[in-house]
Design a protein around this nucleic acid. Structure first.
Lengths: 223, 223, 223, 223
DNA sequence: GATGAATGAGGTTTCATTCAT
DNA sequence: TATGAATGAAACCTCATTCAT
């Protein structure tokens, strides 16, 4: 008999996926779990988050609803896993758009690359980001944390950049680096989320990139 | 933009509120309808939009669920009415923060008043604005239209302002007025929606106002 | 509009049946409720309590499961109503078998009538009593209370009777009236519940009555 | 009465425990089976019989639900094994409280020891006895048989005792020995099952013992 | 011997919605 | 006008149960 208490396999890290009953899934189970995650991601691109039912995911994945419950407690749990994966990937990617860039050499080009990077990241992950935004706005703390995680790296890098600018005298001495960086993060994420709206309203992507880059460069580094 | 189809008018004109069966409600009916709207607005401040059921509104309003259906086809319809009222009020209020202001005389003060006005308007109407944002993000066209209506006036005024700045040589000639105005609208609305987040992150309201005003003034009027 | 708070009709007593949403049902609703109660009682005679599903009751009563939930939160609630009705009726009926009887004149006849009365009451209400016993044994406090209510009147009357016997010297002075009365209640209710078992085991009803009466008479009044 | 079909014997005779597929388990299998039985017994002390699921037993025992099915067809089967073990032990123990006792020498002391023995046996095995009672009351024939088996020895001994008393003239000639013995078994088992209720109602254990002993002595041996 | 994995089956429960009164 | 009453429709979620490994 296996020891009854603490059914944690010694060779599976504490962060390893768990079935809902606490067991560590084997290869086949992991594959099923992965399929369910991918199916959930697919459905997010076509339906509103709140409209996705366990039944939908299961049907689309070709498994029984009961199987879904072997791996996730509910739809939200599955989405949280996807969101956490995105936050992990995205946090680094977005920070790299700010940190270690030649801001002093060519701020315009860096800002433009940065704007383009933001827009691209949003476009590639729009459905999941939309869900994170929605849930965070509705007050869900776990999604709010993920959203923070996603944006924090870049925002901090911008804060440092602004602080440097202030120290160098390029920005007004009463500038509040965190405030400016936070506003720029707001700007970038909101514009990125509504890029299509801009186009519909008559602003071509290129112009949007340029305007955004100009505003960012001015706010972060100024003259 | 055309105002949506259900503005509130005191007389029983063609745009007056209708019961679902097409009849024009009398005084008592209008009172009930108004109670339902107010109850809906109340519930929006305490629950997530998607979690509000017809049953909830009816119970809270002290009427039967069947009564609700005399005036609205579903929860969304009632919320749309509230949102339309807000958009009507808000569009003017927000435009007035931009249009007719002494930008040329004291851009800094005007920008600061404008930022403060945005933040105040969001704070006063946060629950309804949040719903409009959510539904718009989820792709609901009617809410997207209302959101546009709400923001359009101010955005157009900003567009004009930027165009003037370009014409006057205060802004670079390759500036795209619509793009800049749109980005600023994004900035203002997103920052306003997340003002509490800024405070939690360590940016006091006064600093936020100042940073926002500086960025806005710079983008719209520049040097 | 009706006043929203406290939707209690002034003319309905606080003990009146309520729909689950708090409203006081009208004539039609009361009839449905009654049908559901009767159907529940019927099912109790043919199935084990724990096996009765809401669906069963609804189907048998010819209504939708949703209708059941208009009147009862769950099966247990309906059974509790039936059990309370029985306890109310039964408590008086059982007490009357003890109280005000000519114990001093003809204890044998009274005891026999009492035994017969108990057995008859149990036989007439066996299914419901069985449920009360089961639930009480399983620790459900509400059913335990109802069981107490059902038996308390008769037990107290027996306690008084024994106390009188002690005072009159007919019973040993160290007799504990409550203990004796309690044991007799146990005896009567258990024998009554298993009367059929006795018959199957070869004890004819008449003999059972006689033996029970003799034991009861002896314990309560003795020589 | 015939002992039920699954007594525990140390050798692998025809009555030895079988796995569901018919194989005779080896040492390891027997250990698992025993663990499952013990876990089931434990759960019976904390949950209602009907609420115990295969999943619960398996999880608590630290095995997979599938393993449970290697040894038992369902929860009821496992409980039946436990109940049979108890009936086997208890039948002898209870009979020994009646049979071979010095009833003629000191009926009072014997009756008191007997009452105490009953109460003790019930207290030690309350959870399992409760299950047997419940299932028997609900009409399950196998549990009813086990209950009979448990009580039969003592009841028959009491029947003989009463018959002796009648023959010796100590009891009225129209006494029906089986009826009296059956009623006494009812009394003892019901009082034992509700001993705590007596205490809660204000009857101390000592008084309960005494009253019970007096009634038993009187009914079985009389003057 | 043990179990990871999957699922069929079914009751529960909640709502939106309707309609006769 | 308002609503009591009823219900169709679904999603939820849990289990017992099986089977290949």
């Amino acid at each position: 008999m296996t020891p009854p208490s603490e059914p944690i396999e010694p060779d599976a890290g504490p962060g390893a996926p768990r079935a809902v009953d606490g067991r560590v899934p084997g290869r086949r189970g992991l594959a099923t779990r992965q399929t369910l995650l991918e199916t959930t991601a697919e459905l997010l691109t076509s339906s509103s988050y709140r409209d996705i039912r366990v039944v939908d995911i299961a049907r689309q994945a070709g498994v029984s609803p009961a199987t879904f419950y072997q791996y996730f407690a509910d739809v939200e749990s599955a989405v949280l896993v996807l969101a956490a994966e995105l936050a992990e990937r995205g946090a680094d990617e977005l920070r790299a758009l700010v940190e270690g860039q030649p801001w002093s050499t060519d701020p315009g080009a860096v800002a433009e690359a940065m704007a383009a990077g933001y827009l691209a990241f949003w476009e590639e992950n729009s459905s999941l980001i939309r869900v994170i935004d929605l849930a965070a706005l509705e007050g869900d703390l776990r999604f709010r944390d993920l959203r923070t995680w996603l944006l924090q790296g870049a925002t901090e890098a911008m804060t440092d950049l602004v602080a440097d600018g202030v120290a160098a005298g390029a920005l007004r001495p009463d500038t509040h680096p965190k405030a400016v960086a936070g506003v720029m993060t707001s700007t970038l994420s909101h514009v990125a989320a509504h890029a299509q709206g801009f186009e519909a309203w008559g602003v071509p992507p290129a112009e949007l990139h340029r305007a955004l880059a100009a505003i960012v460069a001015s706010a972060l580094t100024a003259r």
